[in-house]
Simulated scan of single mutants.
Amino acid sequence: MANHSNPKVVIIGRDGDSDRKNNLHIDNGGMIMISAQLEILALSNCNLKSIPKFLNSQQQLKAVDFSHNKLMGNFPTWLLESNAQLEFLNLENNYFAGPIHPPPYLMRNVVWLDISSNHFDGELPSSINGLKILEVLDLSFNNFRGDLSKKLTVEFTNLNHLKLSNNSGQICSAEFNLSNLGYLKLNNNHFIGSLTNVNFKLLEGLMVFDVSNNNMTGEIPSSFANLYSSLWILNLKNNNFEGHFPCGQDFEWLVYLDLSHNLFSGP
């Protein structure tokens, strides 16, 4: 790599299922020596155990993918400090741990943030409240706790994917104003609250809605029928929803439906 004069993009490894055997190993000590300023760096599925040292001198990165490796330590706040233009950060399926508290100004340009399947913990990071242009947020399969911010569910109008599955969240905001949301997974937490006051007319593009295995209560509002023309997956199982489930027309695209283990009544 040292002989390549001015690369802007470096992609090594492969995408796809991390469970499939991969014999590629990157030697952090000598494999990569890059003096040029990169814009895109993807080292997915490379069996990395530490972040390559040459990143200490990078200042123009816009996209970084370290998913499906063996990286440990704290959230790499220094990477955001050095690369103010960073828009895409994927740390999925590593061994990062600890709380996350980067200053909001460091993440102001982030559009895609995936830190799922690590060992992060503590309160849901307040710094995400400053990510007004965020389109994809995946914090699933960590050990976060606390409340789902009302700010997140109301002001992030660009958000398309929101995944907080398998954490320990406690309160799910009943106010959603995410008109671009297509993918919402809040399952396997300890969320309480109700969907009764949610105006589902604002979520007509929602394709995946999963709040299963929580402690949510109340009735499903009649505006939920606005999702019938878009939903592919609907999972409300193992909550305490009650009353009549809103009917009136058929789901056009639905491939998975689970309303079991609730308190619904009627036909």
Rank of each mutant, 00 (worst) to 15 (best):
N129Y: 03
G130D: 04
H101V: 05
F144S: 08
L134H: 09
F141W: 12
F141R: 15
P99F: 07
S168E: 09
F141E: 13
I115Q: 03
D114I: 00
C172M: 15
P103V: 07
D138S: 14
V136N: 11
S140G: 13
P103F: 03
P102K: 04
P104H: 08
I128R: 03
L162Y: 00
L164F: 14
S165A: 15
H101K: 09
I171W: 09
N167H: 07
K151C: 00
F141N: 14
I115M: 09
N160H: 14
L159K: 04
D138C: 10
L162N: 06
I171T: 13
E175R: 14
G130L: 06
S168F: 08
P125G: 01
S168T: 12
D121S: 13
N129D: 14
I115E: 00
N109T: 05
H119L: 15
E135Q: 14
E175F: 10
S173L: 05
L164V: 15
V110Q: 02
F141D: 10
S149K: 14
R108D: 01
L152H: 05
N160K: 15
S116R: 10
P99Y: 05
L124T: 10
L134I: 11
F144P: 03
I133Q: 12
G146I: 01
L134N: 08
L139K: 02
R145P: 02
V110P: 06
Q170I: 13
F120W: 02
L131G: 03
D138G: 12
G122D: 12
L159I: 11
I128L: 12
G98W: 05
S116F: 02
W112M: 10
K132E: 06
V154N: 01
E135G: 00
Y105E: 13
K151E: 08
W112Q: 11
N142P: 10
R145W: 07
V111D: 04
F141Y: 14
P104S: 11
F144G: 05
N143T: 14
H119F: 12
N142D: 11
L152S: 01
H119T: 14
R108V: 11
S168D: 10
V110S: 10
C172G: 14
G130C: 01
S165F: 00
L162S: 02
D147I: 13
L159S: 08
P102A: 05
M107H: 05
L131W: 03
T153A: 10
L162C: 06
N118M: 01
N166W: 07
H161E: 15
K132G: 01
L152D: 02
N143G: 11
